[in-house]
């Protein structure tokens, strides 16, 4: 599993970048979501995965029993998921508004503001 995950994350990153660079608006949404997933998964794996118990100290012990996974990356991960979710929700609404206003799915049509 630990060997597989890095490859999975790499694939997710590259697929999401491909989608973000694609000119279709819906693929941009997919790309943003996949990119968020890839970062979250990366954060999870880089924090170290272990097969032990949770890091909660039993009542009759002074320290948690080894092996236990580091809870900090998981706390970070939860925060990051929530933030990412908010940003993605905003991005989806924004892209919908762009589609409604421009009546086009093509990101190449978003050039009217760049003319000098």
């Amino acid at each position: 599993m630990e060997v597989l995950l890095p490859f999975l994350i790499g694939t997710l990153f590259s697929v999401s970048l491909y989608f973000i660079l694609h000119r279709h608006l819906f693929k941009l949404i997919l790309g943003l979501i996949l990119f968020g997933l890839a970062t979250n998964l990366f954060l999870f794996v880089v924090g170290g995965i272990s097969t032990g118990d949770v890091a909660i100290i039993p009542l009759d012990k002074e320290v948690a029993e080894d092996p236990f996974p580091d809870p900090v990356p998981q706390a970070l991960l939860l925060t990051a998921i929530v933030i990412g979710f908010g940003l993605q929700a905003f991005a989806i609404v924004l892209i919908r508004r762009v589609y409604e206003t421009l009546k086009s799915n093509n990101l190449d049509d978003l050039k009217t503001t760049d003319k000098t």
Partner: peptide, 20 residues
């Protein structure tokens, strides 16, 4: 939004790497 979302992802990745 797109480019800053991307930048935030890179930052978060960096934070994860620094912590590990």
């Amino acid at each position: 939004v797109t480019i800053n979302f991307f930048a935030s992802g890179i930052l978060l990745t960096g934070v994860g790497v620094v912590y590990s």
